Simulated assay, not measured.
Amino acid sequence: MTSQVTSRHSTFAVAVYALFHPVPLGFFVAGWIFDIIYLYSTEIFWTQAASWLIAIGLIIAIIPRLINLVQVWVGVSYPQGSAIKVHFWAYLLAIILEIFNAFIHSRDAWAVVPAGVILSTLAVVLMLFANVQLAVRDRTA
């Protein structure tokens, strides 16, 4: 977010968002890595650990997404293709993919592959894309 936009928002909300925003990405990347390890090792521990990481990441993702929802859609009007809106939609889509991924991971360990790995990969790529495009577009703007 640019400094002009953050000054219009609650300082507490911006601080909480900055604190919790990167945490779900870390959990989802760890879950993705554990899915890949399970793909090659077939040790059930890895898929169970990935399942827990995805669930914890989804729980923690609630707080920054709600704050981001208010910051992007209430009060300040951003242009339709702005970096902040693309970031919001990409993260929302990634979280929806991770919700489906959590359901996939609730199955038997053998049933997780390949759908769990594919969903984890797509969600991580979307979240990384969202962060990179926001950083690049804010830097050039």
Results as ranks from 00 to 15, higher is better:
59 I>A: 13
83 A>L: 03
44 I>S: 14
66 L>N: 00
37 I>V: 12
42 T>F: 15
41 S>T: 15
22 P>Y: 02
38 Y>A: 01
68 N>M: 15
30 A>L: 15
47 T>F: 09
23 V>I: 15
36 I>W: 10
33 I>Q: 00
8 R>Q: 12
58 L>A: 09
70 V>M: 09
81 G>V: 03
13 A>H: 03
46 W>E: 10
44 I>P: 14
28 F>H: 03
67 I>C: 01
24 P>Y: 10
12 F>H: 09
32 W>Q: 04
61 A>S: 13
37 I>P: 02
22 P>G: 01
83 A>H: 04
26 G>A: 02
62 I>N: 08
3 S>M: 03
39 L>G: 07
29 V>L: 14
4 Q>P: 01
61 A>T: 01
75 G>I: 07
46 W>A: 07
24 P>V: 05
32 W>D: 09
49 A>C: 07
86 V>Q: 14
44 I>E: 15
24 P>M: 08
10 S>G: 08
38 Y>R: 07
33 I>R: 03
61 A>H: 08
15 A>V: 08
53 L>M: 10
26 G>C: 00
26 G>W: 04
57 G>V: 07
30 A>R: 02
39 L>D: 11
30 A>G: 14
14 V>F: 14
56 I>E: 08
78 Y>I: 01
72 V>M: 08
49 A>P: 05
27 F>C: 07
55 A>G: 07
82 S>G: 06
3 S>Q: 00
31 G>P: 05
59 I>D: 09
76 V>M: 08
38 Y>M: 03
62 I>D: 04
44 I>L: 14
36 I>C: 10
84 I>F: 09
36 I>R: 11
51 S>F: 13
21 H>V: 11
71 Q>G: 04
21 H>L: 15
9 H>L: 12
35 D>F: 05
61 A>W: 06
41 S>P: 02
85 K>E: 07
66 L>A: 04
81 G>M: 01
68 N>L: 15
53 L>A: 02
83 A>D: 06
86 V>W: 13
28 F>G: 05
65 R>Q: 15
18 A>T: 04
4 Q>G: 03
74 V>C: 10
61 A>E: 12
54 I>A: 06
76 V>C: 06
41 S>Q: 13
58 L>Y: 03
15 A>W: 11
17 Y>N: 10
30 A>P: 03
25 L>I: 09
25 L>F: 12
45 F>S: 11
18 A>Q: 12
23 V>W: 14
80 Q>L: 13
18 A>W: 05
33 I>K: 04
11 T>E: 13
49 A>F: 15
